[in-house]
């Protein structure tokens, strides 16, 4: 299964890169060649492609004339940057203190059962990614789940099942 997953991820990222590499070019023209803008550039690329495509990183590397390892060190340091493509729907489960006390770990277990992914993973069909986040400042509604930009509060395992089904996910994946 793991091999299959790798293949599909690779295929997906290749497709994306060939379609709109011009966006990376566009970003680079907006910023002067100074290190202080490096993080902002990587953030822009991440926002557009939902990850950092290898080709884009090579272009950034050439633009700044720095080793690729430096970009790699940035990409692996900051949680918001990702070297792997994210799914169409990014499920964020808040695991801040208030959510933890009110059972966010149960919600994480439930997602694993429904979609067979753990935090940091993407489903094989590229539809769902799962992440945990520290605190969304919505502690009154704990436990909180966010799918793309939509918030769900006071989530229970049965409510979660309905939510996931609404997004077209079922237990068979």
């Amino acid at each position: 299964m793991d091999d299959e997953r790798k293949v599909s991820v690779k295929k997906m990222s290749d497709e994306k890169i060939t379609t709109d590499i011009s966006f990376t070019k566009e970003i680079l023209t907006k910023y002067p060649k100074e290190q202080r803008y490096l993080l902002a550039i990587l953030q822009d690329i991440q926002r557009h492609y939902k990850f950092l495509p290898r080709k884009s990183l090579s272009m950034v590397q050439e633009y700044f004339d720095i080793p690729l390892s430096r970009l790699y060190s940035m990409a692996t340091f900051y949680k918001a940057l990702s070297l792997k493509p994210k799914g169409e729907y990014v499920i964020k489960i808040c695991d801040g203190t208030a959510c933890h006390l009110r059972g966010s770990n149960i919600i994480i277990d439930e997602i694993k059962k429904l979609l067979d992914i753990v935090p940091g993973d993407t489903t094989r069909d590229g539809r769902f990614s799962l992440e945990t986040v520290n605190c969304l400042g919505s502690c009154a509604a704990a436990p909180v789940v966010v799918i793309n930009d939509r918030f769900f509060g006071k989530v229970t395992p049965s409510k979660l099942k309905e939510i996931i089904e609404e997004y077209g996910g079922n237990g068979d994946e």
Partner: peptide, 21 residues
Amino acid sequence: SGAFVCGEETALLASIEGKRG
């Protein structure tokens, strides 16, 4: 960019400078 340690002042400055925080 989602790194808790950047709340530490010297790490925060490094991040503003465009480095690892």
